[in-house]
Protein backbone atom coordinates (compact mmCIF):
# COMPACT_ATOMS: atom_id res chain seq x y z
CA UNK A 1 0.00 0.00 0.00
CA UNK A 2 1.90 2.99 -1.20
CA UNK A 3 -0.28 5.71 0.25
CA UNK A 4 -2.19 6.46 3.37
CA UNK A 5 -5.66 6.69 1.94
CA UNK A 6 -7.56 7.91 4.96
CA UNK A 7 -5.60 10.92 6.03
CA UNK A 8 -6.36 14.41 4.90
CA UNK A 9 -2.93 14.37 3.26
CA UNK A 10 -1.42 17.22 5.13
CA UNK A 11 -4.22 19.70 4.80
CA UNK A 12 -4.31 22.45 7.32
CA UNK A 13 -7.22 21.90 9.67
CA UNK A 14 -9.87 24.26 8.45
CA UNK A 15 -11.51 26.53 10.94
CA UNK A 16 -15.03 25.52 11.85
CA UNK A 17 -17.26 27.05 9.23
CA UNK A 18 -20.88 28.04 9.54
CA UNK A 19 -21.86 25.37 7.06
CA UNK A 20 -21.88 24.78 3.38
CA UNK A 21 -22.93 27.62 1.13
CA UNK A 22 -24.05 30.00 3.83
CA UNK A 23 -22.39 33.39 3.80
CA UNK A 24 -18.92 34.40 4.92
CA UNK A 25 -17.65 32.85 8.12
CA UNK A 26 -16.26 34.90 10.99
CA UNK A 27 -12.61 34.00 10.42
CA UNK A 28 -12.77 33.57 6.68
CA UNK A 29 -13.77 36.33 4.32
CA UNK A 30 -14.67 33.91 1.53
CA UNK A 31 -18.23 32.93 0.74
CA UNK A 32 -17.47 29.76 2.55
CA UNK A 33 -18.31 26.39 1.18
CA UNK A 34 -17.14 24.00 3.83
CA UNK A 35 -14.71 21.66 2.13
CA UNK A 36 -16.28 18.30 1.49
CA UNK A 37 -14.53 15.16 2.64
CA UNK A 38 -12.64 17.13 5.21
CA UNK A 39 -12.06 14.77 8.12
CA UNK A 40 -12.91 16.56 11.31
CA UNK A 41 -14.02 15.19 14.63
CA UNK A 42 -17.57 16.11 13.66
CA UNK A 43 -17.45 14.16 10.43
CA UNK A 44 -19.93 11.30 10.76
CA UNK A 45 -18.35 7.88 10.70
CA UNK A 46 -18.82 6.12 7.45
CA UNK A 47 -21.46 3.47 7.67
CA UNK A 48 -20.26 0.67 5.52
CA UNK A 49 -22.56 -2.25 5.43
CA UNK A 50 -25.22 -3.33 3.04
CA UNK A 51 -28.10 -1.23 4.36
CA UNK A 52 -27.97 1.37 1.62
CA UNK A 53 -27.70 -1.35 -1.00
CA UNK A 54 -30.75 -3.18 0.34
CA UNK A 55 -32.58 0.13 0.51
CA UNK A 56 -31.73 0.83 -3.11
CA UNK A 57 -32.79 -2.66 -4.19
CA UNK A 58 -36.00 -2.45 -2.19
CA UNK A 59 -36.97 0.74 -4.03
CA UNK A 60 -36.61 -1.01 -7.39
CA UNK A 61 -38.38 -4.22 -6.44
CA UNK A 62 -41.19 -2.59 -4.47
CA UNK A 63 -41.68 -0.10 -7.30
CA UNK A 64 -42.27 -2.87 -9.82
CA UNK A 65 -44.58 -4.82 -7.49
CA UNK A 66 -46.48 -1.65 -6.60
CA UNK A 67 -47.17 -0.88 -10.26
CA UNK A 68 -49.00 -4.21 -10.57
CA UNK A 69 -50.75 -3.96 -7.21
CA UNK A 70 -51.86 -0.35 -7.60
CA UNK A 71 -52.99 -0.71 -11.21
CA UNK A 72 -54.98 -3.81 -10.23
CA UNK A 73 -56.42 -1.94 -7.28
CA UNK A 74 -57.44 1.03 -9.41
CA UNK A 75 -58.95 -1.27 -12.04
CA UNK A 76 -61.14 -3.03 -9.49
CA UNK A 77 -62.07 0.07 -7.52
CA UNK A 78 -62.76 2.46 -10.36
CA UNK A 79 -63.53 0.63 -13.57
CA UNK A 80 -64.71 -2.97 -13.40
CA UNK A 81 -68.29 -3.91 -12.73
CA UNK A 82 -69.86 -0.55 -12.00
CA UNK A 83 -66.65 1.02 -10.86
CA UNK A 84 -66.61 3.69 -8.24
CA UNK A 85 -70.37 3.74 -7.76
CA UNK A 86 -70.51 0.38 -6.00
CA UNK A 87 -67.82 1.16 -3.43
CA UNK A 88 -69.26 1.24 0.05
CA UNK A 89 -68.94 -0.37 3.43
CA UNK A 90 -70.47 -3.61 2.13
CA UNK A 91 -68.09 -3.71 -0.82
CA UNK A 92 -65.03 -3.36 1.41
CA UNK A 93 -66.45 -5.89 3.86
CA UNK A 94 -67.05 -8.33 1.05
CA UNK A 95 -63.53 -8.02 -0.29
CA UNK A 96 -61.82 -8.30 3.04
CA UNK A 97 -63.71 -11.51 3.74
CA UNK A 98 -61.26 -13.11 1.33
CA UNK A 99 -57.66 -13.64 2.48
CA UNK A 100 -56.51 -12.90 -1.10
CA UNK A 101 -57.68 -9.29 -0.95
CA UNK A 102 -56.48 -8.95 2.63
CA UNK A 103 -52.99 -9.93 1.56
CA UNK A 104 -53.26 -7.72 -1.54
CA UNK A 105 -54.17 -4.67 0.49
CA UNK A 106 -51.66 -5.49 3.19
CA UNK A 107 -48.85 -5.77 0.64
CA UNK A 108 -49.95 -2.54 -0.99
CA UNK A 109 -50.00 -0.76 2.36
CA UNK A 110 -46.60 -1.99 3.49
CA UNK A 111 -44.82 -1.58 0.19
CA UNK A 112 -46.28 1.85 -0.54
CA UNK A 113 -45.54 3.16 2.94
CA UNK A 114 -42.00 1.79 3.09
CA UNK A 115 -41.28 2.85 -0.50
CA UNK A 116 -42.51 6.36 0.18
CA UNK A 117 -40.75 6.59 3.53
CA UNK A 118 -37.46 5.42 2.12
CA UNK A 119 -37.82 7.96 -0.67
CA UNK A 120 -38.43 10.72 1.87
CA UNK A 121 -35.51 9.46 3.93
CA UNK A 122 -33.20 9.94 0.96
CA UNK A 123 -34.67 13.39 0.30
CA UNK A 124 -34.03 14.35 3.94
CA UNK A 125 -30.50 12.96 3.77
CA UNK A 126 -29.88 14.92 0.59
CA UNK A 127 -31.35 18.25 1.56
CA UNK A 128 -31.43 18.70 5.35
CA UNK A 129 -28.28 20.64 6.15
CA UNK A 130 -28.12 20.44 9.93
CA UNK A 131 -27.69 17.20 11.80
CA UNK A 132 -30.45 18.21 14.23
CA UNK A 133 -32.91 19.07 11.44
CA UNK A 134 -32.16 15.77 9.80
CA UNK A 135 -32.70 13.89 13.04
CA UNK A 136 -36.05 15.53 13.78
CA UNK A 137 -37.39 15.19 10.27
CA UNK A 138 -36.47 11.53 10.21
CA UNK A 139 -37.95 10.94 13.65
CA UNK A 140 -41.20 12.50 12.43
CA UNK A 141 -41.10 10.44 9.27
CA UNK A 142 -40.47 7.14 11.04
CA UNK A 143 -43.19 7.84 13.61
CA UNK A 144 -45.73 8.66 10.94
CA UNK A 145 -44.75 5.60 8.92
CA UNK A 146 -44.93 3.24 11.88
CA UNK A 147 -48.29 4.68 12.93
CA UNK A 148 -49.85 4.37 9.48
CA UNK A 149 -48.48 0.90 8.80
CA UNK A 150 -49.51 -0.49 12.19
CA UNK A 151 -52.95 1.10 12.14
CA UNK A 152 -53.59 -0.12 8.60
CA UNK A 153 -52.44 -3.62 9.43
CA UNK A 154 -54.62 -3.67 12.50
CA UNK A 155 -57.68 -2.58 10.53
CA UNK A 156 -57.13 -5.14 7.77
CA UNK A 157 -56.91 -8.03 10.22
CA UNK A 158 -59.47 -6.96 12.82
CA UNK A 159 -62.04 -5.58 10.42
CA UNK A 160 -65.51 -6.45 11.67
CA UNK A 161 -68.21 -6.45 8.96
CA UNK A 162 -70.95 -6.59 11.59
CA UNK A 163 -69.99 -3.33 13.21
CA UNK A 164 -72.93 -1.16 14.10
Amino acid sequence: MPTDVTSGAGRAPAEPGPGRGRGPGPGHPAPLVEPPRQRTTRTPRSTRGNFEMYGWLFMRVSGVVLVLLVLGHLLIQLMLDGGVSRIGFAFVAGRWASPWWQVWDLLMLWLAMLHGSNGLRTVINDYAEHTATRLWLKALLYTATAFTVLLGTLVIFTFDPDIT
Partner: peptide
Amino acid sequence: LTVLKDLVVDMEPFFQAYRD
Protein backbone atom coordinates in the same frame (compact mmCIF):
# COMPACT_ATOMS: atom_id res chain seq x y z
CA LEU B 1 -16.01 23.63 -3.84
CA THR B 2 -14.56 26.50 -1.82
CA VAL B 3 -13.66 29.49 -3.96
CA LEU B 4 -10.12 30.66 -3.30
CA LYS B 5 -9.99 33.54 -5.77
CA ASP B 6 -12.08 34.45 -8.81
CA LEU B 7 -12.38 31.22 -10.82
CA VAL B 8 -9.97 29.19 -8.72
CA VAL B 9 -11.51 26.68 -6.34
CA ASP B 10 -9.97 24.41 -3.71
CA MET B 11 -9.68 21.07 -5.49
CA GLU B 12 -8.24 19.22 -2.50
CA PRO B 13 -11.54 17.68 -1.28
CA PHE B 14 -12.13 16.44 -4.82
CA PHE B 15 -8.71 14.81 -4.95
CA GLN B 16 -9.20 13.43 -1.44
CA ALA B 17 -12.28 11.52 -2.60
CA TYR B 18 -10.28 10.29 -5.58
CA ARG B 19 -7.42 9.11 -3.37
CA ASP B 20 -9.89 7.26 -1.14
